[in-house]
Design a protein around this nucleic acid. Structure first.
Lengths: 241, 241
DNA sequence: CTTCGATGCGAACACTGTACGCATGACGTA
DNA sequence: TACGTCATGCGTACAGTGTTCGCATCGAAG
């Protein structure tokens, strides 16, 4: 065997032709979501994703135009998760909307990395799942009795609240995850710095110190429910004059 | 003159010692904001920013620990822009809050790149400007008569709505800016694709086609005002039972 | 068996954030 | 005036990024 043989010349060194069960866009998106959930958005690189899928990074470009497009696909895929009620009867629209809002929040908390993307791609997505979701949500406001020219403003109001709130929570939880501590440890550890920073703004301290012992997750759930109720109160007032 | 002389050996090739008017953190932040406004967040690189300031990229690290920290500084600096009323009398809290919300939205629209950052850093910032702003806003809810344990929930509700709405708008406007067209051209150009995409969800088309001739900016302003009024209605209902 | 389009992939390019170490300036002290 | 010290600027380098290109190889169709 000559020493200078090219690597591809030997049957042994040449990589076995891989089992050609074709790489699909769906597999790529699914694995990307797994990677994003595990490591966050800035740890998603094409090479790392390729490795996880057992392919070279550049192979991904046969199925996806760019990293940005991949993220668009990933976002729309996640939009397929929330289970928003479709058929609604007139008297229970508020239940349905509450349920939808809760599902959307849960979606964002399951995938905290999605929040900044929503801020980059916008809240109006044209992916199929996002459209299905929006359409179903809009149907709920229609069933509630909102006139046609007010329906989408009502929906935007709700969506803005939900996304805004969930974004704040997601960012907060991402920080904690990156720090490697539990939420309670993290809160406790930050308290001195927080007290120091709020020395000049004692008002900001009032609300949080009252609930010092309550489980943080409970607080967040309550906060979300409180605001959601206020928003729905305000919207409902438009229906019964 | 020997041919192999090192560049630093000659008085002529050696760069003149630069006028040492020290680079400051303030200058860096200010120039970063200018660059971000002009080119967006992913065009902000340390080298490009250095060039604009007439320094080497690595010099920036004497004043700023990392790119991420720079962005934190930049975000807090922008939080210094909105003019939120501080002293409020009991009967006019709603005016004050409306004014604050409008200022916050304007801030986000002036600097659309800030929206994704809010989703990454969180809505609760510990920068001095962000804290001053939060404190002033909270004072308005206090003046309105919200009990201490409800004040910050009310504020969070409002902030979530404002940030959510402004984020959506900012993302939308960023897209348009990047396309190089005016908002009206862009809307018109996208209409066919939109109609195609909404073929299966005709509900989504209803609201937008009704306002086809209205100036888009007007629509956005109205949408924001509508939702803000609903949120404030819902909050106000807690004060006068 | 041959041909052909679709797919995987190695190499390369331009670019990124940032660590390191050296040079140079300004400044307090002798 | 001379020296030492410290903060600052910056050239170099490294590991990593997204993406393009061209070649190799495959499955299926003719």
């Amino acid at each position: 065997m000559p020493a200078d043989e090219k690597p591809t010349a030997s049957v042994w060194t040449r990589p076995r032709p891989r089992q050609r069960e074709h790489l699909t866009r769906e597999q790529i998106v699914a694995e990307a979501i797994r990677l994003l959930d595990a490591e966050g958005v800035e740890e998603l690189s094409m090479r790392k994703l390729g490795t996880r899928l057992g392919t070279a990074a550049t192979s991904l470009y046969r199925h996806v135009a760019s990293r940005d497009e991949l993220i668009e696909l990933v976002v729309d895929d996640v939009y397929g998760e929330p289970d928003v009620p479709t058929a609604v009867d007139r008297t229970r629209w508020r239940e349905a909307v509450t349920r939808s809002a809760t599902e959307l929040r849960a979606m964002t908390l399951r995938h905290p990395w999605i929040a900044p993307e929503l801020g980059q791609v916008g809240l109006v997505h044209i992916g199929p799942n996002a459209m299905r979701m929006s359409s179903a949500l809009l149907a709920q406001f229609e069933a509630a009795g909102f006139p046609a020219d007010e329906m989408d403003r009502a929906m935007s109001t709700l969506m803005a609240y939900v996304i805004g709130m969930a974004t704040a929570e997601a960012a907060y939880l991402s920080l904690i995850t990156r720090s490697g501590k539990t939420e309670q440890e993290w809160v406790a550890g930050l308290r001195p710095a927080f007290d120091e920073a709020t020395r000049e703004h004692p008002r900001l301290r009032a609300g949080s110190s009252a609930q010092q012992d309550v489980h943080p997750k409970r607080i967040r759930d309550d906060n979300f429910a409180y605001g959601l109720d206020r928003v729905l109160d305000g919207l409902a007032a438009r229906l019964t004059p």
